[in-house]
Computed example of a mutant assay.
Amino acid sequence: MDDVDFQLGDALTGKRIVVAMSGGVDSSVVAALAAQTGAETIGVTLQLYDHGEATGRAGSCCAGRDIRDARAVCDRLGIAHYVFDHETRFRETVVDTFADAYLAGQTPIPCVQCNTGPKFTDLLSLSRDLGADCLATGHYVRRVVGPAGAELHRGADPARDQSYFLFATTQAQLDYLRFPLGALPKARVREIAAELGLGVAAKPDSQDICFVPDGDYAGLVRKLRPEADTAGDIVDLVGRRLGSHRGIIHFTVGQRRGLEIGGTPEPLYVVRVDAATRQVVVGPRAALAVAAAQVTGLNWIGGDHDGAITAKVRSMAKPVPARLDGDRLRFAAPEYGVAPGQAAVLYAGERVLGGGWIAATEPALAAAAAA
């Protein structure tokens, strides 16, 4: 296909490509296109769930049915397919971290943990062990070779762009990775799958959080951490008790539903979750406005860029003008929905400069009062 470029160079003879295969249409198309280049192509799937639990699981990735789909695609393409059991590592580095973050009153992003752990770190190691020249994935981001080397850019299709979840990709990883679908819309990917006769062409997309297919986050956390259901108080901004709750795991910053507090002059939102006191602090929408955020664990892949930046603080948010001073990210205008545990991803236009984890926020109301 002319609209796909693996950036392996002119000569593909003797090249070897490992493709991360989750069993979905995206990674299956990547495998098919890699095989068409003439390079030796190997499909690798990480089994992230216990076999008995994974069999028949739907709405996820790397599960029982998905492993079978990945194997069937590889059989059709005539390429090798390997499955590696990473259930224990996935549970320890992704699922347990997810549960602990909720207990700490944070809003976690397990997809980032998965990408920086099993999907990239582990798969890259496996790919190198197999003697591959690169690891190709079905992520909707673009790898652009600039004057100083490989750069990470937003996917061409705004509705599918996954750059927010890949901010922790290191430069060494980026040099080795390939994202052949980054310039394509999802509809084109499905067309390619149909043209190539792949059985997964119409397969539905997986859930954002694959290990919570029913969307019951609180139920999963409760199962892993029984102490999570300890009740506490719902208080206003000055600490006045307004009601009670059945566990902080049921609340995230910006949430309005489920508070069950009536008789207030205006709608109330979750402004802060205090794990130490088990208090859920609520207030009017204006109290959600944030002037700045403390960012930890900063990963920088922006080279020597020192110009204007934008920051994205939620996966569905638009990047907004901001300024980074050490670990303090200051927004040009008050930003809403900024929650500890989420990521702040930094951009220069379409290029991803890096990002880090939001550890704390500075309310815009407090900043205005201090000015």
Rank of each mutant, 00 (worst) to 15 (best):
D157P: 06
D85V: 12
A32V: 05
A72Q: 07
G52F: 12
R285N: 11
A291P: 07
K318N: 08
P158A: 05
G247S: 08
L224A: 05
G356W: 00
R328E: 11
A369L: 04
V280G: 03
A156C: 10
P110F: 00
E362M: 10
F331W: 07
H153W: 10
Q279W: 06
L329W: 02
T13W: 11
G356T: 02
G263Q: 10
V73P: 02
N299I: 07
L124E: 02
L33H: 10
Y140W: 11
P321E: 07
Y82M: 10
A187D: 12
L346M: 12
D100T: 07
A333P: 06
G14R: 04
L220F: 11
A311L: 01
G131W: 13
T296K: 03
D10N: 08
P226M: 06
K318V: 09
T252C: 10
V320W: 02
S206I: 00
A322G: 09
D69M: 05
A366D: 15
G23K: 06
K186I: 04
A39W: 11
P213G: 09
V19P: 03
C114K: 01
R328W: 15
L324I: 01
I192M: 12
R89E: 12
A172R: 10
R57N: 10
A287R: 00
L177N: 08
A39L: 10
A168L: 09
P265E: 15
L174C: 08
F167V: 00
A159F: 13
Q47S: 13
V295C: 03
L166S: 11
Q7E: 14
G254M: 09
I42A: 03
P147L: 13
G326L: 08
D236W: 08
A369Q: 06
A168Q: 14
L242Y: 12
A359S: 13
A63L: 01
A168M: 10
A360I: 02
T41A: 03
D208G: 08
A343L: 11
D304P: 04
Y176I: 05
W300A: 01
G297K: 03
R272F: 14
A58K: 15
R188E: 03
G149E: 06
A148K: 01
G59M: 09
A275P: 13
I358T: 05
D161Y: 02
R225N: 04
P110Y: 02
T252E: 12
S60T: 07
T361H: 03
P204Q: 05
W300L: 04
D75P: 07
K318Y: 13
L324M: 04
S28L: 08
V282D: 05
V352P: 00
G105M: 10
V338C: 02
Y336R: 11
A369D: 08
Y217V: 08
L166Q: 03
L365C: 04
Q279S: 14
V4I: 15
A333K: 13
F165E: 01
C114S: 00
A39N: 11
